[in-house]
Nucleic acid binder design. Structure first.
Lengths: 343, 343
DNA sequence: CTGAAAGCGCTTACAG
DNA sequence: CTGAAAGCGCTTACAG
């Protein structure tokens, strides 16, 4: 591989000038620039990231912490992040960290070792509730950090207002005339690792209370955010003699599971059962699912943009200062899975 | 951040000794080791990756090239890769590269710039058909490379035998007595970027030919590997007056789409229509889908292990030498979506 | 605008 | 087993 010395020799300049030309930092005469560029091109020179990082303190690499890869929301957010980073010529370092309970040692190693190797210039934490010690460790990194899925995170964050999201979904069902509305949310056992689900549940209950239809007992069913889990939870709800006329599921995947469960029981959606989800899942249209879209791709892009802005790149989006909690847009998308109750 | 000098001073040794102790390369007296470890621990020292990489030529970072993140197979493979890498204390550099047609410039930049910055020690290419130039560029990197999804790749690869996979699925349907079997595969427009689908189609046709039931015209329907696409393709097939009694879909997601399409049309699965997929999708059980499981998680783990072995780590799995094409296991999982034809 | 030179923080022959 | 020292390939004040 050609080094900067090769290019310098080839172009008859010092390595300092090559560096200035290629990085765009510092003045270079036009004629010189041309020569350097030509030389670099001829030799197929690409700067060595470790040498550059060591000398400059910048890695052009951003870390991303995700809890899973196999849920649509995460893959979508991650896609948004990498796309934006790639466009800015930054690389992505992917860290999949397990839940606290699953493999504590592995999780600890990420915070104590991996992230501390000065391999990254910034960090995006996707939908993971860090504990106090982890937050301190992340802060001690001294790099820009943004969490997706706050805002009760102690870190700067970007998130939809999950209480408002849940209120919106619930209000939609209430406006249609539903009273017996059930909610499928996350099992409490996972609450330590994720804070979003409990906020959605809170919003649901608040909206119901506001409408003076307090949630009846047994109208919350825990699930694991999968289609299958959503289906199981829906089966439990629909087996009740006083089954609800509507279900608000905290994710589209669970909502789709609920649709399938209803069909399996011979119930028509939406005539016999209305269902709303949250996310804006790509399968939403296929299942004709009413949902609150939260544009996860854009969340990823915004998070990346915020980090890049903090690092001095790109037009700093004035709306996403890293010292506060950015609110992301969401939107009710009414499709065919909701209507007025028939009884 | 503490540097190696701090540790050396603290432990009263040279930086060389600290380096040897922490890297495990070279002899260190037990007493010395203890002191160094204690000092490193006390100072919270973690080696700087760029300094270490520059000096050693090793990055402890592996690149992964994927075409998408939003398909179950890819997220599963990627999960397997990162898990294995993390366990070996390696980081993952994620590169999502678009199809040739989508954004040629972005794709080119990955091969010409990103991958050439000496940021990675090895590379895993997941299910992407590289063109001749890209293969040359990847080879020129001079690092271990393995492709998942060969074996017609010009790179060392790891893959199930996709012809055999398709034969197995088809043979299962034939053995049940089906003759009118349709296949849902990939639209030819994507063939340049992926080679697996055409091999599955080939296997299907070969098996049918062997059984002397050559595939009828119109019994191939192209789709895009999504549930929705699978459903649309199935609708086209099932609208025919001489509709097939069985469908072999080249992926579980498409197969699930086909199941849903059949249900929508009032057809019972499997009584009126048998369906087989490929993958081993997590939703397979939920939909009671018969499939050929190809254990994508394991494929990812194996690919990572192969790279690590090449880099001198871990028990080199004798079965996956990087100079050849590793065959991965697959297995027919019979569930409730297949049975004998009723007519 | 350009270059000489120090320095980034490690690793690794080499010598002892 | 250990240390002194060169060197990895850049970047960046500093001086001119």
């Amino acid at each position: 591989m050609a080094t900067i010395d090769d290019v310098a020799r080839h172009a008859n300049v010092s390595t300092a000038t090559v560096s200035r030309t290629l990085s765009g930092r510092g003045p270079v005469a036009d004629a010189t620039r041309e020569r350097v560029l030509a030389a670099a091109d001829a030799l197929g020179y690409v700067v060595s990231s470790s040498a550059s990082s060591l000398a400059s303190g910048r890695t052009r690499n951003i870390g991303v912490l995700v809890p899973h890869l196999d849920q649509w929301f995460f893959s979508e957010v991650l896609t948004g992040i990498t796309a934006s980073l790639q466009a800015a010529d930054y690389d992505t370092a992917l860290y999949v960290i397990s839940a606290h309970a699953a493999d504590p040692a592995a999780r600890r190693r990420v915070f104590e070792q991996s992230l501390r190797r000065q391999r990254i210039d910034g960090l995006v934490v996707v939908s993971i509730a860090l504990d106090a010690r982890e937050i301190a460790q992340v802060r001690a990194l001294g790099i820009p950090v943004i969490a997706i899925g706050g805002p009760d995170s102690a870190l700067p964050s970007l998130s939809v207002d999950n209480v408002a999201v849940a209120r919106m979904a619930t209000a939609h069902l209430l406006a249609l005339g539903h009273r017996d509305i059930a909610h499928i949310g996350l099992s409490p056992q996972f609450e330590g690792d994720f804070h979003i689900p409990s906020r959605r549940r809170k919003g649901f209950e608040a909206q119901m209370a506001d409408a003076e239809y307090p949630v009846g007992p047994g109208l919350f069913e825990p699930a694991d955010y999968t289609m299958e889990g959503g289906a199981r939870a829906a089966h439990r709800l629909l087996a009740r003699t006083d089954r609800p006329t509507a279900i608000f599921a905290a994710s589209d995947e669970m909502a789709i599971g609920a649709i399938l469960a209803a069909r399996e029981r011979g119930l028509r959606v939406p005539e016999d059962l209305s269902i709303v989800g949250v996310d804006g899942h790509e399968l939403g249209e296929f299942f004709s699912l009413t949902t609150v879209d939260q544009f996860p791709l854009r969340q990823g892009q915004r998070a990346a943009a915020a980090i890049l802005a903090e690092l001095g790149h790109a037009p700093a989006p004035a709306t996403t200062p890293l010292d506060t909690h950015g609110e992301m847009p969401f939107e009710l998308v009414v499709r065919g899975s909701t209507t007025s109750p028939s009884r």
